[in-house]
Design a protein around this nucleic acid. Structure first.
Lengths: 244, 244
DNA sequence: CGCCCGGAGATCCTATAGAATCTTGATCTC
DNA sequence: GAGATCAAGATTCTATAGGATCTCCGGGCG
């Protein structure tokens, strides 16, 4: 399964599509492919946090020259997925600490309830379809197995849900900020929730219903509750009860 | 004029400096210099919004090869200062529309009052010194002349004030988000406020006093008032009623 | 008069090579 | 035994060259 590879999905570098041209075909260029490939490697921990990300090594592995790799890594660095030391090469970003995790959710609690409220106000039919569709996919994909790939797919659906809600606000800056944060979360850990799948689904469902009802206050509240519960689950998945 | 070139100032790619090494010397590499140079060109409208930013042309102008230019432009694109079309090169980002300006301030009103509150809570002595210093500089630099350079310097001080407050929160993610937004504002227009200099200074002073008093609520309120007033001034500076 | 088409020029994209720098391991000294 | 010194290897950084693509402009056609 997982035949929804969608290799042409550009992270946050989509152009405007309001009244511009028909967007003929943004021919995939090597640097973009490399960007996507390395992003996936880092997020899936195929490249471990803190490990070196050699330019030539990557170039050999992907069968391209170092030049597009260098360009992709520069973008990844702005996204915060890798860090660079001037003449010592790139390394994958370290795992989030407990404090870093809390800071991340502090930001999400600032941005995403507002996003949910704006989505309840501004979402059009296509947005609603997309959000409903993601909830349905998650329903069929409970993510309760013990296989790594199951966790990974579930986490990807979760991320896409939040990104789609943020995109439904009609606020590009807000959507970009939310998307950037999610990359960091995805680095942190994938699917560390023991029985969290059904809970996450139920909370997403509640957010969806509030948006469908066009009730901004309730949507914001549902999002706030979801994030708070999600942070608690992440803490439980770590070593919360004392430094065991 | 403007002898404070400071060529070693890296935009938003500073490493942590808490308990790491003494940061021996992040040797400036060509791609970084080019990044700073092009960023300045775009923000000062030396490269006009919407104009082409040719790779080879830049390379000739800066007397380097196209390779580091390509790397710098990839970073600039993530910052939103240039946009890329796959095989057609880079262009400087278009000027903000009225709606874009409103959206920008909507985001600032979401982030910066929170930042001011956290700064009031967490700023250390060095942070307070830096903020006070910026207010003093702005006091000596009223920005009421009609010279372009005067406007530009005043706008740079304004941006540094907001960035410094955001940096005093101890929240890297929040500070980065605020910094990214300011790049967009700086693109929009530089110092379009006819008599706004003294007003801006007074509002900054009020924010500073609230932070010094360690009063988060008042700091947030002062920041909110400042941003609201600033947006009104920007609207007045555009095509609304009449010029001053 | 407006639109479509084709070729010259310029630009971008990718690969490769050489110079400078960092990292690693072994050796030497205290 | 611990720490510093130094050389070999690997890697980064920059420049250059060739192939592919887009842009621009002039001519032909409806």
């Amino acid at each position: 399964m997982a035949d929804d590879d969608a290799p042409a999905r550009a992270g946050a570098h989509e152009g405007p599509e309001a009244d511009e041209g028909p967007s003929p075909r943004p021919r995939q260029v090597l640097a973009d492919s490399v960007y996507e490939a390395v992003k996936a490697m880092v997020m899936d921990h195929e490249i471990q946090p803190g490990a070196r990300v050699g330019i030539e090594a990557l170039a050999r592995a992907l069968d391209v020259s170092p030049t597009p790799v260098r360009e992709a890594l520069a973008r990844l660095e702005s996204d915060g997925l890798v860090t660079k030391r001037s003449l010592a090469g790139y390394r994958a970003t370290e795992l989030l600490t407990r404090a870093g995790l809390d800071e991340l959710f502090e930001m999400r609690l600032l941005l995403e309830p507002r996003a949910a409220a704006l989505a309840a106000r501004n979402a059009d039919d296509a947005d609603l379809d997309a959000i409903e569709n993601l909830v349905e996919q998650m329903r069929r994909h409970p993510g309760t197995g013990d296989r790594y790939a199951v966790y990974r797919d579930f986490a990807a659906l979760d991320q896409r849900f939040h990104d789609t809600v943020a995109g439904a606000t009609g606020r590009r800056l807000l959507a970009d900020a939310v998307g950037r944060l999610h990359s960091h979360l995805h680095i942190f850990r994938l699917g560390s929730v023991p029985g969290g799948g059904p809970l996450t689904l139920a909370e997403h469902d509640r957010i969806l219903r509030a948006i469908l009802r066009r009730n901004p206050d309730r949507a914001a509240e549902a999002m706030r509750a979801h994030l708070t519960a999600s942070l608690d689950r992440q803490h439980a998945g770590r070593g919360l009860p004392r430094g065991g």
